[in-house]
């Protein structure tokens, strides 16, 4: 399964692109996605602690624009957005 992770706010510093791609071999959850992003930061961003903190405190949003919990099952290829802590307006 392929997950396209759309980056917003501070998470845009994770990549030059607005989207990161992750592959999963079996049914996975948001909790697994969170771990994969942390692994990506370890491998590609020298384990940047600030970036990891962003991942730990972020929410995630499904393709149909609902905030989803860590237990949300990813059962097909889809786009998911990472929603870092907010502070606009």
């Amino acid at each position: 399964m392929k997950i396209q992770l759309e980056l917003f706010g501070a998470s845009k510093d994770f990549s030059k692109n607005d989207v990161l791609e992750f592959n999963f071999n079996e049914k996975s959850s948001i909790k697994d996605l969170r771990k994969q992003i942390i692994n990506y930061i370890d491998k590609n961003l020298e384990g940047n602690k600030n970036f990891k903190k962003i991942v730990e405190t972020s929410a995630f949003c499904s393709e149909d624009n609902n905030i989803i919990s860590d237990n949300y099952k990813i059962t097909k290829d889809q786009k998911i957005s990472i929603i870092p802590p907010i502070g606009g307006g």
Partner: peptide, 11 residues
Amino acid sequence: EWLKGNPIQTN
């Protein structure tokens, strides 16, 4: 720098 902000509620 990105401002820190507050985590969104996931219910």
